[in-house]
Design a protein around this nucleic acid. Structure first.
Lengths: 193, 193
DNA sequence: TGTTCATGTGAACTTGTGTTCATTTTATTT
DNA sequence: AAATAAAATGAACACAAGTTCACATGAACA
């Protein structure tokens, strides 16, 4: 009983795929490299996955689900909406640094409808999360009154940008603190207007 | 004298390439499609460009230069730093909508050092522009005191995110006004703290 | 009309990579 | 030990796309 079980093999393929996709993006990732890192042959990969797209879809779903759980869970308890925003930003940036290319970039180039759907659903969920926080902040008087949905969209967009910046030049990354400061405080001077 | 001149041909290839690259990104763009849209044969393309990478590099440089001029020029006259920020955001979003995929996404996947360099230089220049505005805003008392360089980085990142969002789901785009509001005003209530 | 030169053609070559499949290896069962 | 099943192999196939090149076309000029 030396050989791996089917489940083990499938998992090691997925782990290898997360690595390679994260490093190289979709197009530049080859089945041969995934196979090699997973310690299996090229043909072996196709025992467990129908094709490249299915590998990508599977791991995308896995990572998004994991992130959803993690971010949702760790915000739940926080009462102060400003703290919740800070926390959410921190989680996002940390997670993104780990999976760089994967989460954001691909998907436009490759019109897999399945992947687009799953991403849209994910981002909608995240937006709802933010909306909830903002709504709480506004009604408690801590946040300025605003268009909640629009503002949530802007924040999601903002975070995408931060993450994209991490991807593009990982040397020049700004701190989480400055991200939070801008989103919470803005540029304009307080208590003047 | 019916046939096109070399210059005309080269330009029509570039125009076609801007179209196709913007729609499809780098990997999904084929020389055959560029050639077809430019009204020239596949071989004809290679009279004017060494290879695909050179086409991409040429048009990237062209677009970045154009944007640099345009954004620099239209901000110069503005005195109020808040207005300057608004204007800069507006220009960015408009321009990005036009060239979607092109400016931001590619380049990580394809490690053309020449392209990376040109982009880094571009973003550094843009950051300097923003820094100048912020510095002015702070010293005139209109903006909160802050880490100028870091904040500029954050704003550039923010805009990248906005643009990326345009690229990913162009239906759900938020308004320029909300972008400006967040960057200038932040979430927290004014005049409380 | 023939020569020259710039411009252009598209079939063919090359390479990379997703995918398949006949075959082999290893483990389990009888 | 033989038979069966599970897991794995890697050479071979297919096909798309970047690139090349021998050749064609049209314009200008002698």
């Amino acid at each position: 009983m030396n050989r791996r079980t089917a489940k083990e093999s499938k998992e090691s393929i997925l782990e290898a795929a997360i690595e390679v996709f994260s490093e190289k993006g979709y197009s530049q990732t080859t089945i041969r490299e995934v196979a090699e890192r997973a310690g299996i042959s090229v043909g072996g990969v196709y025992i467990y996955f129908k094709n490249k797209e299915e590998i990508y879809f599977t791991l995308l779903k896995y990572l998004l689900d994991e992130f959803r759980e993690r971010s949702g869970g760790s915000i739940e308890g926080i009462e102060d909406p400003a703290e919740a925003v800070k926390k959410y930003i921190a989680i996002n940036l940390n997670y993104a640094q780990k999976f760089k290319g994967l989460i954001l970039i691909e998907g436009r180039e490759h019109g897999f409808t399945s992947c687009i759907d799953i991403k849209k659903k994910f981002f909608r969920g995240q937006r709802k999360l933010i909306e909830e926080i903002i709504r709480k902040g506004v009604s408690s008087g801590r946040f300025e009154r605003c268009n909640v949905e629009g503002t949530a969209r802007v924040i999601i967009g903002t975070l995408r940008g931060f993450i994209l910046s991490l991807v593009m030049d990982s040397d020049a990354l700004f701190s989480q603190k400055e991200c939070s400061n801008l989103i919470l405080g803005g540029l304009l001077k307080r208590g003047v207007k």
